[in-house]
């Protein structure tokens, strides 16, 4: 029997530990393309999360019915169906957002996060676990997109969610809302995320070594006393 991971862990791991953007570096195309403003990032993240959650639920429910040889094709058809639903709903209800996101809503089909989660998780787990995993991954994606979109919007056009927050005296950095700004900002964010993880690891390692030294000193002195 495989060791069962606690349910809360299935959800929480997507937020930081296995964050699809910062840790797995998956799904870069929509991340870079739509994050001109925070609202675009929110819309994109919600659309992706919807597809991820519904596809994960369906695929984990019928995972025993899908023959192994054609599983990738089956996953893609299921994902494409849900993406079509999102695309049509967005076009009908939020025409402006749909226009701003352009071809990137249909392109959710080839977002590696979604296919990756189906292959790595939903095809091997129960629907409830797959749901939690998909929600967690979606939340992680949401955090990444909103922070990237927020930074670009605040520095690039002085606003956040359309409300001006920086004074007029601040000259907006045009580069932040251009394609180059997306690459630079995400590159720096990934770098700092790595730096944070590396530092945490180093501190942990050092404290372990420290502990080990202390214990061995005590042992040595005990041994000497014993003699």
């Amino acid at each position: 029997m495989v060791k069962q991971v606690p349910l809360s862990k299935e959800f929480l791991k997507g937020l930081w530990e296995q964050n699809p953007i910062f840790k797995q570096v998956l799904g870069m195309c929509p991340t870079l393309a739509v994050t001109v403003s925070a609202i675009n990032g929110i819309a994109m993240a919600l659309a992706t999360t919807f597809v991820l959650v519904t596809a994960s639920l369906l695929i984990s429910t019928i995972r025993k019915l899908i023959p192994n040889q054609v599983r990738i094709a089956a996953y893609i058809v299921i994902i494409a169906t849900f993406v079509t639903i999102v695309d049509l709903v967005m076009k009908a209800k939020f025409p402006e957002l749909s226009k701003a996101l352009g071809p990137f809503i249909p392109l959710i089909v080839v977002n590696c996060i979604i296919l990756g989660r189906q292959e790595a998780f939903a095809s091997k787990n129960t629907p409830f676990r797959a749901l939690l995993d998909a929600l967690g991954m979606g939340a992680g994606f949401f955090i990444a997109l909103v922070s990237l979109g927020g930074i670009r919007e605040i520095i690039g056009s002085r606003t956040f969610l359309g409300i001006q927050i920086l004074p007029d005296a601040f000259e907006p950095w045009l580069i932040m809302i251009l394609p180059a700004g997306a690459f630079l900002t995400l590159g720096l964010m990934l770098g700092f995320a790595n730096m944070y993880t590396d530092r945490k690891k180093r501190i942990e390692k050092e404290s372990l070594i420290e502990q080990y030294k202390r214990v061995s000193k005590v042992e040595i002195s005990m041994a000497q006393e014993g003699i």
């Binding site: 570096v25 580069i175 251009l178 394609p179 180059a180 700004g181 997306a182 690459f183 630079l184 995400l186 590159g187 720096l188 990934l190 770098g191 700092f192 790595n194 730096m195 590396d198």
Partner: peptide, 17 residues
């Protein structure tokens, strides 16, 4: 910490410029 993907993205940004 910047080896791999982060530095590639930063270089891509300069290339895009």
């Amino acid at each position: 910490s910047f080896k791999g993907a982060p530095i590639t993205l930063i270089v891509a940004g300069i290339l895009a410029l």
